[in-house]
Design a protein around this nucleic acid. Structure first.
Length: 421
RNA sequence: GUGGAUGUAGCUCAGUUGGUUAGAGCGCCUGGUUGUGGCCCAGGAGGCCGUCGGUUCAAAUCCGAUCUUCCACCCCA
């Protein structure tokens, strides 16, 4: 039991739940190409510097959540805690830095050494999208529209899109100063965490959950007014476009995201009812520096947490995908019949008909029970009589009716019902 | 990393103020006359009561430690 449980924060995903996962993945593979995106697979671990530089040395993720280890050559490697940095590392091998746009998406596990809780795992799974190489409000808006279409296809209703702007690097200094001087005045009334945030990272104070801090945040200065007119126009354009796409959104000035590389638009999709971790997808525009890269890579993208999407689908009672027709269950009475059935099974499988055979010498009753449990569509019975007459008994498990049928007739019947041939 | 709950058969859970061979439902297995499932009936298998240590004549039940799971915080998807 406990002895055989997987490491904390990880989980085995069994065949029974796989259809739900495949729906998330298949939908991504169907929707994202409509916008010109292709799937990219990058390694699950990278050189540690890719994340240190890419995500930001100061971030919580990098400081205390990474699974870092040395390989035999003494290189420092890290299990990827997010997708963007690795994707950009891969795209650097293309001509992305010359203003060429790249559109890719990825699906896979991420690793963060946090304490597990509702919607938070140490190995979790994300589907993410990156549009790299160009800067344009059109791309930001399109990215969010695509994300919302994806969620819509997954029947995720009641999700709220929150957006905000972080401006560009030059905007942040004046904005930070204005926030700083305000919070300095209220330091005494803030929670312990926020007291240190005043000097370390004022932005974090904006999304503190403590009641007393929220009161203070309410009257915080409008830092966006410190941005340049250009940055504000960029954001306004993004909002206009979203409106014209009929994508509902809400501007949330308290939305700040934890990774250093964000610039301009940031956004998050939240859904109530899955616990404290209500963000099911999030992203934004970024300027990302990789080791030995003087110029940042620009792009816009988002990632959705698959476990959280599944949680939402569960609370919304989204119907599970309809499963296909159950298999053909071959019932054998006697060893000769079983040998016959084993061969027949191979023959049918080579024609893509799903077949299950009982290999132990069990009673007919037991085999029929097994057929029922396997959700078989048909049970085909073979015993001494059938071997002698050359006619098998085929029972429709749904109808309960059965008939004698020759092997060749059976085969063409099954091909027709399973493949429509 | 901090805090709060939790841990008994494959699953969901009972187990009274510590007292003999630890229970139920579901699931599983075998039967209910010769080779027919789902319903019903009967029987059966399956637990060192998370682990280690302590208190006691006696511990699933009390105490401690540890681990797991769950939830919250920090942070994020």
């Amino acid at each position: 039991m406990a002895k055989f449980s997987p490491p904390p924060g990880t989980a085995d995903i069994f065949p029974e739940e796989m259809p739900l996962w495949h729906r998330l993945e298949d939908t991504a593979r169907r929707i994202f190409p409509l916008y010109g995106y292709g799937e990219l697979r990058t390694p699950i671990f990278e050189f540690t510097d890719v994340f240190k530089r890419g995500i930001g040395d100061e971030t919580e993720v990098v400081q205390k959540e990474m699974y870092t280890f040395e390989d035999r050559g003494g290189r420092s490697l890290t299990l990827r805690p997010e997708g963007t940095a690795g994707v950009m590392r891969a795209l650097l091998n293309t001509d992305i830095m010359n203003g060429n746009e790249k559109r890719v998406f990825y699906i896979g596990p991420m690793f963060r050494g946090e304490r597990p809780a509702a919607g938070r795992r140490r190995q979790f799974h994300q589907i993410g999208v990156e549009n790299a190489g160009r800067v344009a409000p059109e791309l930001d808006a399109e990215n969010m529209a695509m994300m919302m279409q994806y969620l819509d296809e997954l029947k995720i209703s009641g999700a709220k899109l929150l957006i905000n702007t972080r401006g560009v690097q030059a905007d942040r200094k004046p904005a930070e100063e204005s926030l700083n001087s305000y919070f300095q005045q209220h330091v005494g009334d803030m929670c312990d965490d926020c007291k240190t945030r005043v000097s370390r990272n004022v932005w974090r104070i904006l999304d503190c959950k403590q009641e007393r801090c929220r009161e203070i945040v309410k009257n915080a200065p409008d830092y966006v007014s410190c941005y340049t007119a250009e940055s504000r126009a960029y954001f306004d354009r993004v909002c206009e476009l979203l409106t014209s796409f009929k994508v509902d959104f809400e501007i949330d000035k308290q939305l700040v995201r934890g990774l250093d590389y964000y610039a301009h638009t940031v956004f998050e999709v939240v859904h109530p009812g899955i616990g404290a971790q209500s963000a099911i997808a999030g992203g934004g525009r970024y300027e990302l520096y990789l080791p030995e890269n003087k110029k940042p890579i620009v792009g816009v993208g988002f990632a959705a947490g698959l476990e959280r999407l599944l949680m939402v689908q569960e609370t919304l009672n989204v119907a599970p995908p309809v499963s296909g027709k159950g298999p053909v269950f071959l019932v054998s009475m006697g060893t000769q019949a079983r040998a016959f059935n084993m061969k027949l099974a191979q023959d049918l499988r080579s024609e893509s008909v799903p077949v299950v055979v009982e290999v132990e010498d069990k009673s007919m009753k037991a085999q029929m029970r097994a057929a029922n449990r396997a959700n078989a569509a048909f049970a085909v019975i073979c015993g001494d009589d059938e071997l002698a007459s050359g006619k098998l008994v085929c029972k429709d498990m749904q109808e309960g009716s059965q008939e004698e049928i020759s092997q060749t007739e059976l085969k063409s019947f099954l091909l027709k019902t399973y493949k429509g041939v």
